[in-house]
Design a protein around this nucleic acid. Structure first.
Lengths: 100, 100
DNA sequence: TAGTAATTTAGCAAAGTGGCGAAGTCAGTC
DNA sequence: GACTGACTTCGCCACTTTGCTAAATTACTA
C-alpha cells in the first residue's frame, strides 16, 4: 500500500541518515561492528570528551541503530542493525563514481 | 588494505549520509529512481520553491548521488548510484527494531 | 532586440548541530 | 555516610543548514 511513500516516512528515514551523518559516529559504529564497547572506550577511540560521546551515542540509540545495557557503573553499547554497515560499500562506490 | 578505515574516510562517507539526511531530498531520490526529472517537476513534487530545490539537488550532485544534464532551458537530474535506494530497506528495519 | 520561462547564485533570518565544562545521577568502595 | 568513577543532562557558544526572496544567467520565441 506504499508505492508512493509518504513525506512522513521520508522524514523518519532522514532521521536515521542524519544519525549516520557524522564522522565520529561512523567511527564508533565501525568499532561496535566488532563487538560491544563501553562509553569510555568509545570516547578514547574518537578522542572526544565523554559528554560529547554520550550524546552521539544517544543519537544513534534514538535512531534505533544501537542499543545500550548498563552493567555496574558502565554502559555498554552494541550494534542493533548490522545492515547499516553494508551502506559503506555503496557509499564508497558513490564517492568513486562521483570523481569519475 | 583498509581493515581500519581512517578518520578521513569516515569524514567523506559522512558527507554522503549528510546529503541523504533530509526528507525532501529522499523524496526526490525516490522519484528519480523511476527516471530522470527536471528541476521544476521535482519542485512541484516536494512543494518547495525552485531555488530551494535547486540547492538540494546540487548537494546531491556534490555528494555524487545524482548527475545533471542540461537540455534546452531545462536541467534533468538522474540517479547515478541506484544502490543508495537499497538503504531504505535496512533503514526501515532499523526503525522497526527501534520500536520493538 | 524584447520578453518569457527554467535554473542557479547571493543574501538574510530562523532553526538545528556539535563541542565543551559544570552539575547531577547511579554503582561500587571505604 | 562519604568518596570515587562512569555516565548523562544542562547551559552556553560557534558554526552549519534551510528556506525564502531578489537578482543574475541561459535558452527559446516573437
Amino acid at each position: 500500500m506504499a508505492n508512493k511513500p509518504s513525506v512522513g516516512q521520508f522524514k523518519a528515514q532522514a532521521q536515521v541518515f542524519k544519525a549516520l551523518a557524522h564522522p565520529g559516529r561512523l567511527l564508533m559504529l565501525d568499532e561496535l561492528s566488532r563487538g560491544e564497547r563501553c562509553v569510555c572506550e568509545l570516547a578514547a577511540l574518537v578522542g572526544s570528551e565523554m559528554p560529547t560521546v554520550s550524546r552521539h551515542l544517544s543519537q544513534l540509540r534514538n535512531a534505533g541503530i544501537v542499543d545500550d545495557e548498563k552493567r555496574g557503573a558502565q554502559v555498554f553499547y552494541r550494534l542493533v542493525t548490522p545492515c547499516v554497515m553494508n551502506f559503506f560499500q555503496c557509499v564508497a562506490s558513490v564517492r568513486e563514481k562521483g570523481r569519475a
